[in-house]
Design a binder for these strands. Structure first.
Length: 591
RNA sequence: GGGGUGGUAGUUAAGUUGGUUAUAACGCCGGCCUGUCACGCCGGAGGCCGCGGGUUCGAGUCCCGUCCAUCCCGCCA
């Protein structure tokens, strides 16, 4: 018979000796020694050993023989101190055991597709995802979900204390141009019309500011139908924040307060003051806009010292207005094989570079492709500029600005990982002063780098109508930690005329502005306070807090890289009748 | 859309130059075992070698295609 448990599996200690207790859990280990058997029960809280010996009834002893791994079992018995030699120091409850008076099997299992205990080798990801309920039983994933819970609670408490109000916004919303591909939902009532799932609650939270809510937050789900990565899922969660009368330092301070509370509550760690980098500085020193600052190996500009180089790859790059940059791998000359250098070259090629100019520095000079960059007289200046010394490996790239920065920036992280140069801990930074607009050569037009509701810096507003859009900076900011973008936001446009200017700069004509963003322009025209905010990526925060290698390890029911749920088998075909009701027709094979 | 890696028993892996009956560990089934703690010992069952085609006397192995998982590029305001 099912009883109410008196304790969880993890909480019993020697203080409980002599008490009769009831525990329930999964059979984590079954060790049948014949006349004596041990059963380890596990629940979310821990494990406890149940002992079945000559003190137990025949009924209990025969029932114990039936128990298999991962059966759900209830045990009633007396907490007893273990004999001196039988104490298990590695177990939180290892001082004691429960001598079974009654056992009951509450649930049985089919043979398991993979082992739950940590010592079982990891099954492949598709097997784990298909049986997600088993994968989630593993203590590592349970821990990740607990961290997620505590982080969410900490964020809620921090924001509540700062006067923020939690408000839900719609999941069925309007599709907007720009941005990521939308997930769409057909309307039954309005034939041929569609809802979109929100890529973020951006416009709703701005309108809540116009509505006078003053300070809003929400832990909300966002949906983007784009290809996935190790840190990207089609649906993900944000701690979404917006406030009226916001200045950039005010918003950053609030975000920091949230992050500090989370780190304190979850890890018991204090976060040091968070430095601020400009976008230009981040790109120049680290090659990427989300720098990993736990290690050095910063990029150095070698364009000036190689300005006269006749070496073809460098000459060609410089003649095409390109740049030459590099970084030093300290003492890397001796232990970096040709094979490894070829892999580095392959890596930077994937970012559009023609190749990698490496050089091994010794007292005699430089060996490798980089040797041809200068003659002997120019070499000391090159090495001095790079900061390279004998024994170092110098990795250099020449080409257009973007591939050089991206290629070297990614290579820098790759090399650091490979050589274990990345320390423990968290290196936060803010990245600010982003360009507001990016020019897309293929499309032949400008796109908003952040989003079209981001306010340009006040001093750059005149450039919107009569200047170079590439010179306009956005009043935007990203929060970065350990090379991951964990949050981003901006001061928004609250003046409808400025908003229209930005739309126009993006090539959205007046009638299209009216059609697609009329409700925003209307709202901004009815007493909109200056406002701004940001969103923190909850999933990525949890990855940092838990050290999880994949975003799938911090989401209870994640999808595969092809956006399927292998457990429920979504997406799935839909019966023709249901499609018809929605006024939708398949153009490819249907159910 | 492009590139890399992987797919062999329930699971994780091994499988030589293409060669005759495809191995091992864990799990599962049966038996033994009174202080185990990833218990141990003995025995047994378990295979569409991802799928489809090709080469060959012969394919887990070679070739082509395809599917799935995963990592990356593009994409992700």
């Amino acid at each position: 018979m099912l009883e109410v448990r008196t304790h969880t599996c993890g909480e019993l200690r020697s203080d409980h000796e002599g008490q009769t207790v009831v525990v329930q859990g999964w059979a984590h280990a079954v060790r049948d020694r014949g006349g004596l058997a041990f059963l380890v029960l596990r629940d979310r809280h821990g494990m406890i050993q149940i002992t079945i010996d000559e003190r137990c009834s025949d009924a209990v002893r025969s029932l114990a023989k039936q128990i298999r791994l991962e059966y759900v079992v209830q045990a009633r018995g007396v907490v007893s101190r273990r004999a001196e030699g039988a104490i298990n120091e590695a177990m939180a409850t290892g001082q004691i055991e429960i001598v079974a008076e009654e056992l009951e099997i509450l649930g049985r299992t089919e043979p398991l597709p993979f082992a739950i205990h940590e010592h079982g080798s990891d099954a492949k990801e598709d097997v784990r995802l298909k049986h997600r309920y088993l994968d989630l039983r593993r203590p590592a994933l349970q821990h990740n979900l607990m961290v997620r819970h505590r982080a969410s609670q900490a964020a809620r408490r921090a924001l509540d204390e700062l006067g923020f109000v939690e408000i839900e916004t719609p999941i069925l919303t309007r599709a907007t141009p720009e941005g990521a591909r939308d997930y769409l939902v057909p309307s039954r009532v309005h034939p041929g019309q569609w809802y979109a799932l929100p890529q973020s609650p951006q416009l709703f939270k701005q309108i809540l500011m116009v509505a006078g809510m003053d300070r809003y937050f929400q832990i909300c789900r966002c949906f983007r139908d784009e290809d996935l990565r190790v840190d990207r899922q089609p649906e993900f969660s944000q701690i979404d924040v917006e406030l009226s009368f916001a200045t950039q330092p005010l918003v950053r301070g609030i975000a920091e307060a949230v992050i500090r509370t989370i780190w304190r509550d979850v890890l018991g760690e204090e976060i040091a003051e968070i430095p601020i980098l400009t976008y230009a500085e981040a790109i120049s020193r680290y090659g990427v806009d989300a720098p990993d600052r736990r290690f050095g190996m910063e990029l150095v500009d070698l364009t000036p010292v190689l300005a006269d180089s006749a070496f073809v790859p460098i000459r060609r790059a410089l003649d095409d207005q390109g740049i030459v940059k590099g970084f030093v791998v300290r003492s890397g000359a001796g232990d970096t094989s040709r094979r490894v250098l070829d892999a580095y070259t392959e890596l930077v090629r994937s970012y559009g570079l023609g190749g990698l100019l490496w050089g091994k520095v010794s007292a005699e000079g430089v060996s490798g492709p980089l040797a041809k960059a200068t003659d002997d007289t120019g070499r000391p200046a090159l090495l001095a500029a790079a900061g390279a010394e004998p024994g170092d490996l110098l990795l250099v790239a020449a080409g257009a600005d973007k591939p050089v920065h991206t290629g070297l920036g990614r290579l820098r992280v790759h090399v650091a990982r490979e050589r274990s140069l990345i320390g423990e801990g968290f290196a936060f930074c803010w990245v600010v002063d982003f360009p507001a607009f990016e020019h897309d050569e293929d499309a032949g037009r400008w796109f908003a780098m952040h989003h079209p509701f981001t306010s340009p810096k006040a001093e750059h507003l005149p450039l919107l109508t009569n200047g170079d859009l590439g010179e306009v900076y956005a009043d935007a900011y990203d929060l970065v930690c350990n090379g991951l973008e964990i949050g981003g936001g901006s001061i928004r446009i609250h003046d409808p005329q400025v908003q229209q200017q930005v739309f126009s700069a993006l090539g959205i004509e007046a009638d299209e502005q009216r059609e697609k963003f009329g409700f925003l322009l209307d709202a901004l025209s009815h007493g909109a306070p200056p406002h701004g905010g940001l969103a923190l990526g909850l999933d990525r925060l949890i990855m940092l807090l838990t050290g999880a290698p994949s975003i799938r390890d911090v989401i209870a029911f994640p999808k595969t890289t092809s956006a399927q749920d292998l457990m429920s088998e979504a997406p799935s075909p839909i019966p023709a009748a249901q499609l018809e009701e929605l006024h939708v027709q398949n153009t490819r094979g249907s159910a």
